[in-house]
Structures are given as structure tokens and as C-alpha cells.
Write a protein that binds this DNA or RNA. Structure first.
Lengths: 137, 137
DNA sequence: CTTGAAGCTCTAGTCACTGGAGGAATTATC
DNA sequence: GATAATTCCTCCAGTGACTAGAGCTTCAAG
């Protein structure tokens, strides 16, 4: 039986976050000690590692909730789990594209600035005047 | 003189967001009509376009506040403005790197899944078992 | 048996908005 | 000039995924 602190150390998930996940219904309400403290078992450790891993991949809580529900029906086809992952991959790629555009624009703005006075600062001027931008954003 | 709705249409910034920026001190409190409605001038249009542009580049409100303050001292050297942009560029690049790692991991997980049953689903298995990951994340 | 760490609940704060309620002002139509 | 439709006002609450703090209780070590 693990305390919430033990569970936290083993999974790298902070104590308040574990309680938050319980509140959100991602992990079942733990058994309690006589003094009302949460007590966990291996089962909970695995569940929490699963959640942690999914969060690290950037999945949001509703998606994780769905994956957990799916994982409890081993006989079903896994198209839904695949779809969650594939949708997320698309979202990740879109974010990358947006950030790359920002990267280029920032590089361009910075490289154009001669670093003298605010009056001539390309950073400030570029922000003031959208016409100085390269692409649309 | 523009109403808040006119300003919104011209800049693409939503009405409640304009009021929010006023509250945050990014734009000055507007003059009011007899009936207490906000009235704006060209000056405000430019300021709001500046803010919008900076937000599109992903700068946060404190950074924008600083840029606005700087832009009002044309004689100062612009190293601080450059630093804000450069710091932001670094942050953007870091985000891109993280997302690329996620992209690869998701691609790998998805491609390994044969799409049959949850029991064998690589998506679910990869989440359950960190040992199946390629890199650290 | 004492002490200090770790646990409990509940509330509020983060960031940058966004939306709604309920009411007043403005604008358009007749 | 009356009325109707639209826009505006303020204030409050909600978003996502935590995080931090107050004030109290329980646990484990010495």
C-alpha cells in the first residue's frame, strides 16, 4: 500500500495533481486508511503512469478518459484509440507549422534591426506596421 | 470617432478583448460618449493593431506592455526590444523541438498498431508501458 | 510521547480571453 | 417622432490543467 506521496515519487506526478486526477475521474477514488488518508496499490501506479505518459504526449483529459475507457474493453476493435492518436498527431503538426511561421517572422524581424534607437528599431516598426510582414499570420 | 464595435471590425480584435486590454492597461481608457460608450480615434486603432500583431507573434501581455513603453521613448537604444524578440524566438524554437519529438513518437506508435483489437493495440500498449518508447519524454 | 513531515479539505490563482445576464444607449426604419 | 433592432455598458463566471496556500489532522521516527 502506497501513500499519495509514495505514488507521487514513483510516477513523477505531483501530489495535488494526483488528487486533481481523482477529482476529474481519471483515477478511481483511492481506498482510505483509518485516518482518512489515500492508500494506493500497483494497479493505481500503472493507471497513473498511463495518464502521465499520455499527458506527456500532449493528450488532453477528455482524450485520456476515453483511452482509459477503451483500454478496459480489450475485445473491442481499436479504431477509436487509433483515431485519438491520429487526431492528436494532426493537431501537433498544425502547431508545428504555426510555430515555424512565427520562427521565420521573428528571425526576419530581428535580423533587420540595426540595434540602434527605438525610433528606427525594426522590431517595433514591424509590430506597428503589418505591411512589413512577409506572409500572413 | 469609432465605436468599440467599429474598432473591433477594423482590427479583428473582439469587443470583449478590447475591453480586456483596456483593463490590462495595454490601451488607454477611451473617451466616452454622453451615454458612456467608448469612442476611439486613429491613434487607438494603431495601438490595437500593434497589440494584435504582437499577440499573433505569440508575445505575452507583459512583453507587449514593455514594447509599448519602449516605443514611447524613440531616443532610447532598442536593445531591450531586440531582447524581447530574441527571447521569444528561443522559446518558440524550444516549443518546436518538443513538438517534433511528440510528432515522431506519435507517428511511431500509430504505425506500429495493426488496428485490430484493443488487447493488441499498440497505442494503448505504448501508453501503458514506458519501455516501448523510443526516446525519453 | 513528542515532534516534524506528510496528509486532509477547501478555496483561489494562473493566462488570455470568452460568454452571458440584465439593462442603457444608439441607430435605422417607418 | 415613435418604435424596433442593434450595439453598448458593467459585472460575474467559465475555460484547461494544474498549482499554491490556509488551517487542520494523521502518521512515522526517535
Amino acid at each position: 500500500m502506497l501513500s499519495i506521496g509514495d505514488l507521487s515519487k514513483r510516477t513523477g506526478v505531483k501530489v495535488p495533481t494526483i488528487r486533481y486526477y481523482e477529482q476529474m475521474g481519471l483515477i478511481e477514488a483511492a481506498e482510505r486508511s483509518e485516518g482518512n488518508q489515500r492508500r494506493y496499490e500497483r494497479h493505481d501506479l500503472e493507471r497513473l503512469a498511463f495518464i502521465r505518459h499520455a499527458r506527456d504526449l500532449g493528450l488532453d483529459i477528455p482524450a485520456i478518459r476515453e483511452l482509459i475507457a477503451l483500454s478496459q474493453h480489450p475485445d473491442l476493435p481499436c479504431v477509436n484509440a487509433d483515431r485519438i492518436a491520429a487526431d492528436h498527431l494532426i493537431a501537433v503538426r498544425e502547431k508545428i507549422e504555426k510555430l515555424k511561421k512565427l520562427e521565420h517572422e521573428l528571425e526576419r524581424i530581428i535580423s533587420h534591426c540595426d540595434g540602434h534607437s527605438i525610433e528606427d528599431c525594426y522590431v517595433i516598426r514591424a509590430l506597428s506596421d503589418h505591411g512589413l510582414c512577409e506572409g500572413e499570420h
